[in-house]
């Protein structure tokens, strides 16, 4: 019983990440407003970043920074490779969001609405 409980707590991070990804995907699929779709995409981004960092976690590990005289044993350090990957992914994600929002502004200026059904019905 207790083992199961601890296991559920341990996998809480994975569960949170997967749920956040699914919520963002739901928003991007169901909502009809362009801004809501961009918000959904940025939520998916957050969830994937959390998932990647969680894969590299080591139980009882330390941050991958060496400091002489303290705990600097490479064996108990957290995996640094997903962290470097996520560092890049966050900055690129911001660039993608900025370009998407610029396109949204441009579409609004052209059509006067953000509802994608109406945009589809309008003439260019």
């Amino acid at each position: 019983m207790e083992d199961t409980l601890f296991k559920i707590l341990d996998y809480g991070v994975y569960g949170t990440a997967v749920l956040v990804i699914l919520i963002g995907l739901y928003g991007a699929l169901v909502k009809r407003s362009l801004l809501k779709i961009v918000i959904g995409l940025s939520i998916i981004d957050s969830g994937i970043n959390l998932l990647l960092v969680a894969i590299g976690y080591l139980k009882g590990g330390t941050a991958p920074i060496f400091s002489p005289g303290y705990l600097d044993n490479p064996k108990i350090m957290v995996d640094p490779i997903p962290q470097a990957l996520v560092l890049t992914a966050i900055v690129i994600g911001f660039g993608v969001t900025a370009v998407a929002l610029a396109l949204v502004i441009r579409l609004y200026r052209h059509h006067g609405t953000l509802h994608i059904d109406e945009i589809r019905n309008l003439k260019w």
Partner: peptide, 22 residues
Amino acid sequence: KDAYLNETVNSLNVANTVTSIV
């Protein structure tokens, strides 16, 4: 991971492994 960590601290003398990877 081990290769990167050892290389970082032994031959590059950099404290932050994420920096040395990036």
